[in-house]
Simulated assay, not measured.
Amino acid sequence: MAFAVSGVRDLSHGDARGWFGVGFGVLFGVLGLLGLVGVVLMGRLSRSGAVGASAAFAQTTEPPRPRRDWGPIG
């Protein structure tokens, strides 16, 4: 962000070296946004995968016992 701001300031003062700052600012900004999107997507995928894995694990361990709706025995 600082590169882009200083580059725009330099360009507004007529200094052509401001393109360097603008270029680096845009490059780091795009890479930062892509990294943030990747982290968010990985978090969502890991949460959805963990729920599915635990449900599959619960199904493979032991089938549910039948309910006795006729009351207590004894």
Rank of each mutant, 00 (worst) to 15 (best):
G49S: 12
F57Q: 12
L34Y: 13
T61I: 09
G18M: 02
R65F: 09
A58Q: 10
G21K: 01
G71K: 02
Q59N: 10
F20R: 14
A2H: 13
L36D: 08
G14H: 00
P72F: 12
A50T: 08
A16F: 11
A4Y: 03
P66R: 02
W19G: 10
T61C: 04
V22T: 05
L45I: 06
G49E: 05
S12T: 14
G38L: 07
F3Q: 13
G18E: 02
E62T: 15
V5W: 04
Q59P: 03
D15T: 10
D10T: 10
P64W: 06
P66M: 00
A50F: 09
M1E: 15
G21V: 00
E62V: 15
V51E: 12
F20D: 11
F24C: 05
P64V: 08
L45C: 07
A58V: 06
L31K: 11
G21Y: 01
G21I: 00
G21A: 00
V26N: 00
G14W: 01
F24N: 12
G74L: 05
A2M: 03
A56E: 05
S48E: 14
G74C: 08
V8I: 15
R67T: 10
L41C: 05
V40N: 07
F24L: 15
A56N: 15
G18W: 01
V30S: 00
S6I: 12
G43T: 14
D15R: 14
G23D: 03
V37E: 03
R67K: 07
D15H: 12
V26C: 02
R67H: 09
R68T: 08
V37R: 09
